[in-house]
């Protein structure tokens, strides 16, 4: 066995993250989507703490705790409350053809691995092989934002993209400095509140959270 047990756990977490990214891409129910997002946060927290244990980086423990608190608990709670208030808990979204989106997602994963290969070879971290997965989950989240037509799933996509970035930072360089991470966490939280207010505004203005109504705002 060339890879130590911690490395294997990290690899498995990465694989789970990629799987969840695909699941989110194809999930049509908003409630399930939020649950998946919460699960993604949890796995991210686990993998970060394993990285912290194996590399003896103390500050990564704080990162892991922060991730667990914010992304697995607080943000999903806010989202749950939001969809309850907006009364869209059981909404099902119409989407583009899901198999096509999956195929595009596959191509993106190949692209991301291809992109990450030279960087992975240079990096000396235990997590270097997961960089491709991290980039793939960023791109998949982006793709999810493009393909969704409702406001809440787009925000979830945005948050998932942030998760992917965080994972990429952990796997490439053992995380960003603590100040940066705190800053990003605060940004995400504030962004979430502002977007929550926007949801209500959009709904009072257009009677729907479907973003296609916003095409009317275009200047003729």
């Amino acid at each position: 066995m060339g890879i130590p047990i911690t490395g294997q756990i990290i690899n498995m977490c990465a694989a789970l993250l990629l799987l969840i990214a695909f699941a989110m891409l194809s999930q049509r129910r908003i409630l399930s989507l939020i649950n998946l997002f919460s699960l993604q946060g949890l796995i991210l927290a686990i993998s970060t703490s394993v990285v912290a244990y194996s590399s003896q980086q103390q500050h990564l423990y704080y990162s892991a705790a922060l991730t667990l608190l914010l992304k697995a608990i607080v943000l999903p709670m806010i989202l749950h409350r939001l969809i309850r208030k907006l009364n869209i808990k059981w909404d099902v979204e119409t989407m583009f053809n899901i198999p096509t989106i999956m195929l595009v997602g596959l191509a993106l994963v190949v692209f991301a691995f291809n992109l990450a290969a030279p960087i992975s070879q240079m990096a000396a971290t235990i997590t270097r092989s997961t960089l491709g997965i991290a980039m793939a989950s960023v791109l998949l989240s982006f793709l999810m934002m493009i393909t969704r037509s409702k406001a809440v799933p787009q925000v979830v996509g945005f948050l998932a993209m942030e998760n992917g970035l965080f994972f990429a930072a952990t796997s490439a360089t053992y995380g960003m400095p603590m100040v940066v991470e705190l800053g990003i966490a605060l940004d995400v939280l504030v962004g979430m509140f502002i977007l929550g207010i926007f949801f209500f505004q959009i709904r009072t203005a257009f009677d729907s959270l479907d973003l296609k109504h916003m095409e009317k705002l275009k200047e003729e």
Partner: peptide
């Protein structure tokens, strides 16, 4: 280029990123 569709705008930045 200006469609007013948020997806298309996102697509622009996605393609730029890629």
């Amino acid at each position: 280029l200006q469609h007013g569709r948020i997806h298309v705008y996102l697509l622009y930045s996605f393609i730029t990123l890629l």
